[in-house]
């Protein structure tokens, strides 16, 4: 097909997104960029302040540094944990067994209650001072504590919560696993390959595009983690769960500093975009696209 025809076809296919982007998304994004150079309370018109927001952020705002640190810690632990855990579960749930649809639904259930208010009550009942975790520890004679309300463990409980809600990542793995051609496994079985070998030689490479997706999105979403910190810990104690998105939200809607919040958002975008770009560059060495003929051979 001629390049011209391909251009037309390409734009025809992406037109739903492109139109939506130009009409609904572009203006708010451009606005937030403009607002990041202003003092904007939302209650009154914005006032241009140049680089003041950025200067304050990198100059003397302790909360900025603190929330960045908290967020990086969260991402560093929660992304790999969730990826590993959800891949293992997906492998288990990909088997053809009687009653599997019930198991899948039960195991997926915690992910359904993600943003619900009930989740904060739930989590307090697990990790609170009088929670179940402490009751179990007491059997072994270990004195528990308020895991959510201690600065050194609060973030850990949120990482656990995030891992517990692995459902969507797992479902994407599951769909990916089902896309792996069975013939490959059959051929490998004929060759006498064991299950470990099959996992590393077939499953992992064939799953790598999906793995890549989950990794990229896991990083993007973890950097914006908000709900759990907002509902359960309110960012405390001693700002130990003061994640970036929580900081940003408070600046915008509690302190009425939408201009500063916009600046924070654009800095976050720069950080996440840089990490994503690195991810894409590195992906050449490990992601296997059948379509492109398979660089790994």
């Amino acid at each position: 097909m001629a390049q011209r025809g391909r251009n037309v076809a390409g734009y025809v296919f992406i037109s739903p997104w492109l139109i939506g982007f130009l009409l609904l998304t572009l203006w708010p994004i451009a606005q937030s960029f403009y607002l990041s150079f202003t003092d904007y309370s939302m209650l009154a018109d914005p006032v241009w302040t140049g680089l003041a927001n950025y200067r304050h952020m990198f100059g003397d705002d302790d909360s900025f540094t603190k929330s960045l640190k908290v967020t990086f810690t969260f991402v560093l632990f929660s992304v790999p944990l969730k990826l590993f855990f959800s891949l293992m579960v997906a492998m288990l749930l990909a088997k053809n067994l009687r009653g599997m649809n019930v198991y899948r639904t039960l195991i997926y259930f915690p992910s359904l209650i993600g943003g619900s208010i009930a989740v904060s009550v739930l989590w307090r009942n697990m990790f609170g001072a009088d929670g179940y975790i402490n009751a179990i520890l007491a059997w072994f004679g270990i004195a528990g504590k308020g895991w959510i309300s201690s600065p050194d463990t609060a973030l850990g409980t949120l990482i656990l919560l995030n891992t517990w809600q692995f459902g969507s990542t797992m479902v994407i793995f599951l769909a990916g696993l089902k896309q792996v051609p069975q013939e490959l496994y059959e051929a490998a079985a004929v060759d006498g390959a064991g299950s470990f070998r099959r996992f590393f030689r077939i499953t992992l490479p064939m799953l790598s595009p999906v793995m890549f997706f989950n990794l990229v999105l896991g990083i993007i979403n973890s950097f914006q983690m908000f709900t759990a910190a907002f509902v359960i810990t309110k960012g405390g104690p001693v700002q130990s769960t003061y994640v970036y998105a929580m900081f940003l939200y408070e600046k915008a809607f509690k302190h009425f500093q939408m201009g500063y919040a916009s600046a924070l958002a654009w800095v976050l975008l720069a950080i996440v975009a840089a990490l994503t770009a690195i991810n894409f560059l590195v992906s050449r060495y490990w992601v296997f696209y059948e379509a492109e003929g398979g660089r790994e051979g």
Partner: peptide, 20 residues
């Protein structure tokens, strides 16, 4: 102690400092 103090949630039946 502080970890107890900060786990209180007022008007929550199980976490209100007084109701609990």
């Amino acid at each position: 102690p502080p970890d107890k103090s900060l786990s209180f949630v007022e008007n929550d039946p199980s976490a209100d400092p007084m109701a609990s």
